[in-house]
Design a protein around this nucleic acid. Sequence first.
DNA 1: GACAGTGTAAAACGATCGTTTTACACTGTG
DNA 2: CACAGTGTAAAACGATCGTTTTACACTGTC
Lengths: 175, 175
Amino acid sequence: MDIKTNLIATAERLFDRNGFSATGMDRLTQEAGLSSRTLYKHVGSKTALMALVLGARERRFMERLDVQSVDEIFDVLGQWTRDEGGRGCLFLRSYGETGGDIPEIANVVLTHKDATRAKIAEIVQRDLGAGDHGELTEQILVLFEGAVAAAVYRGMDAISAARKAAAILVAQARS
Amino acid sequence: MDIKTNLIATAERLFDRNGFSATGMDRLTQEAGLSSRTLYKHVGSKTALMALVLGARERRFMERLDVQSVDEIFDVLGQWTRDEGGRGCLFLRSYGETGGDIPEIANVVLTHKDATRAKIAEIVQRDLGAGDHGELTEQILVLFEGAVAAAVYRGMDAISAARKAAAILVAQARS
DNA sequence: GACAGTGTAAAACGATCGTTTTACACTGTG
DNA sequence: CACAGTGTAAAACGATCGTTTTACACTGTC
């Protein structure tokens, strides 16, 4: 595998499992199987590596979220959580750990949240037909965000609860 | 004010604004206006201080959450966010930063989440009358958690969306 | 067969981390 | 006045942080 790709994947795993600050560069180089010199040649700095990790995750996530109905949104989330484990939104976690003070990271996070909201709006639109669905979109977004957060301690139950709630809200909006 | 109380309040502010790892003990002693020797005499270690901060927040939060209806839950959350700012759930953030690996902290976090869920169950019960409302409770919990998380980037809109969604789910469960 | 490029291994950089220690001032009590 | 208790100020602890440097091996190309 490409050095940089492998490095970013390893960093994503460690950041997600142990936290950003708690993951030292020594641990990272060791687990990625490369020297610190090579690491810095490829990514420049730890902050840049964090941004790269989030960027890669964003692309992977958006690929998966390309669905047609509100119901499927929560299917995708269930699969994601089963595959990758539910330790909370890595974007919000990076934002929290840095206090939102590092523009390089804050930008990626806020852009990702904008994109997620836009994608949900698009799905709601497709599901409900033409009309203003701003309120429903915000509700689905909150359910999605809540399912991610609550899954940390409630597991899959949180996700199926969100899914059922979303179905009720969609039905209600249709009538 | 009592030294320890003031220290914990200062630590809560700094941890919340800048993150746990990113907040050094020097910064803390400086802002709390005491020597590091006094700090360590009173709280023992940074980890213990984190647990104390979370414990204090838990008591303050549970006091506020002592309401009678589902609707009021989101009123409380709105006030909390207006008063203290919405930077995400400090419990989940502490859990994420430490990878859930520090028992002293993981315990406080999971206990808090259990208590929150129990409190919501109690409110739902009072609101809906006797019967099994496990499903609705999980849905309200997810909406609550989602409102907290989404408020980081959507502000109060996330909270009022959660409130409206909860009202619909409650009405649906009543019929 | 020199050479530029890219990699590793490992030591070292200064800075900062959480924590402890030393030295000293102030307080109330016997 | 002695004294134990509690506080501050500040230096120092060893450890670890992110990052850079030194020294060297391997690779493909002219």
